[in-house]
């Protein structure tokens, strides 16, 4: 299945665009997506942390992803 991933902050700079697309097996979990992206973009492994948000909520590594989910990479936040 094809997943579209929104990118923010430094992940946008590392991947070089505001969206990326990942081709991943059906039933893939958050941890599979992160591994896939870290393999493709080793710069992500140098970050303090990278979390995944699914439908506006932080998602644990074992959450299963669906093609119509809104998915985003969340590098360390620094608001305020």
């Amino acid at each position: 299945m094809q997943l579209k991933i929104r990118l923010f902050g430094i992940t946008k700079d590392i991947i070089g665009q505001t969206w990326t697309s990942v081709d991943i097996p059906e039933q893939a979990k958050v941890q599979d997506l992160l591994q896939n992206l870290k393999n493709t973009y080793p710069g992500l492994t140098k970050l303090h942390s990278v979390l995944v948000a699914v439908n506006d909520e932080y998602a644990k590594p074992d959450v299963t992803l669906n093609p119509n989910d809104e998915i985003a990479l969340i590098p360390p936040v620094s608001g305020g």
Binding site: G9, I10, H48, P75, G80
Partner: peptide, 19 residues
């Protein structure tokens, strides 16, 4: 809260807390 801050210096810029 998913908000990110970039500091801009005379000679460069950095996303705060990223590394």
């Amino acid at each position: 809260v998913p908000i990110w801050k970039k500091e801009i210096f005379e000679d460069g810029e950095v996303w705060v807390a990223a590394h």
